[in-house]
Design a protein around this nucleic acid. Sequence first.
RNA 1: GUCCCGUUCGUCUAGAGGCCUAGGACACCAGCCUUUCACGUUGGUAACACGGGUUCGAAUCCCGUACGGGACGCCA
Length: 462
Amino acid sequence: MSVRTRFAPSPTGMLHIGSARTALFNYLFSRHHRGTYLLRIEDTDRARNTEAAIQAILDGLEWLDLRPDKPIVFQSTREARHAEVAQALLASGRAYLCFCTPAELAEMREAALAEGRPPRYDGRWRNRDPAEAPPGVAPAIRLKAPREGETIVHDLVQGTVRVANAELDDMIILRGDGTPTYQHAVVVDDHDMGITHVIRGDDHLTNAFRQMQIYQAMEWEPPRFAHIPLIHGPDGAKLSKRHGAQSVVEFREQGFLPEALCNYLLRLGWGHGDAEVLSREEAIRLFDLDGVGRAASRMDYAKLTHLNAVWIRQADDGRLSTEVAKRLGRNGAPAPEVLTRIRALMPALKERARTLNDLAASAAFLAHAPALPLEAKAQALLTPAAREMLQELAPALAATDFTPPALDASLREFAALRGEKLGTVAQPLRAALTGSTSSPPIDAVLAVLGREEVLARLRALA
RNA sequence: GUCCCGUUCGUCUAGAGGCCUAGGACACCAGCCUUUCACGUUGGUAACACGGGUUCGAAUCCCGUACGGGACGCCA
C-alpha cells in the first residue's frame, strides 16, 4: 500500500512553527516514499475556529511550499459520517449512551482529584438501562472501552508504548448535541481518507491509545503512528511569545527565507550524519522517520539566522532584489535606476546579509538622493580633513573609467600619491557614499552608483 | 496526584558494545585573509545527568534516582 500522510491542524490561530514542522515531516515522509500528502482542517470546534485562522494556515503552507496533493478536507463537513460511525458502535454494543450532565461530570472529576485519584469517568452508565435516563438530558455516546489488558501503540519514533486499559476511561465519541469529539472524528477521518501514517506532535501520544481503542472497536486497521517531539523555547519551556517569533508569518516578516526555515525545522529533531544545509530535494531523498529523535528540542534563533544567511547567499539575485525592493518600497516603489543598482550590487550585498531585512537596510543607500543620512561612525570618519581629501579625490574619480578594476587602480594611485594607505582614502569615501562604515567593496559601490551620482554625493558633502 | 515520554558540548545533533583521545554544525574566543563589513580559512574552549549492574570491554544493554517534558475536557 502506498504511503498516505496528512497534516491536520485546528484553525485556532496562526500557523505555529511546531505545526509547520509537523507539516514538513508529513510532506517529506510522503515524498520520500512516493506517497500522497493531504491536508485536513480540524474545524469541529465552531466557537474557536475562524476563517482568518484557516487562511493563515493556508498562507503559511503556501509560503513554505507545503501545499497538499489533493483538495483540503474540512472536518466539519463530515459530521454526518462521524455520527453514523458512532451510531454503528452503539448498535453493535461497543458504545453506550451516557446521561450524565456536564455538572455531574465536573463533580466527579473534582471528587477524584480531591481524593488524589486520576480524574476519570466512572462508567456509571456503562451497563445502565437508558430507560432510567433523567428527563431533559441529551445523551452523549461513550465508547465501551476494554477494562482489562492493555492498549499498545507501536510508534515509529517512540517505540512500543503500552498503557493499562484500567488507566483509560470510556471516552465520549459523540456529544449530546450530536457532534463528534476530536478523538472520534480523527479516527473516522484518518480511516476514510486512507491515511497510512499519522505523523504528529508527541503531545498526541496519549491520544493514540484512545484512538487505538476506536480502531479496535470498529475492527479497522489502524495507521502507523509517529509522534515527533515538541519544539521548546531556548530555555526549555514551552515555546511562547516571550521567546520571540513563533508563527511562520512572523519569520517571513523578519526576513527569513522559507527554504531556510524549512532547513532549520528539518534539522531540529532530525539528523542524518553531518548533513546541515539541505535543499528540498536532498531532504526528500534523505528524510525518514528513523532519523527523528525522541527528545524535545529547543528553538535556536542564532542557528536559524545562520542558515538563513547561507540560503540568502545561494538565492537568485533577481528574487532577492525583488524582496529588497518590496521592503524599500514601503513609501512608494523605488525608481527604476535604483532597482538597477540593487540588482547590480546584489552579488556583493547578499554576501553580507543574514536576513532579507538586513539586505534591504544595506541596500538603502542606493536609493537615497545625494544627501543621505550618516551613521554616527560614518559621521565621525568624515572629519574636515577627510572631507577636504574627498574633494581632491573627486576630480580624479571624474577622470576615471567607472569599472571596478579602473576605480580600484585609481583609488590606489590617489592614496599612493598622498603617501596614505588605501583604507585612509576608502573609509571616508565609503562613509560619504553609503552613510555607513561597512558596505560591499568600495570599487563595486562606485561602479554601481555611477560617476554622476558619486560626484553629486561628494559635492553634497563639501 | 496518576499515566506516558525523554536526558551526548550553551544549542541542534553524529554515535546501533570495541572505529570514541566522543565527530559535525551554530554560538563563543584567538589568528590569518582584507579598503570596511561580511565570506572564507586555521586553531581553541566545551558534553555522554547521577548511581548501580551485565560484559574482557558501555555514550551505546538492564535497573534505580534526579531533573525535564507531555497527557489526563461533551477543546483540538
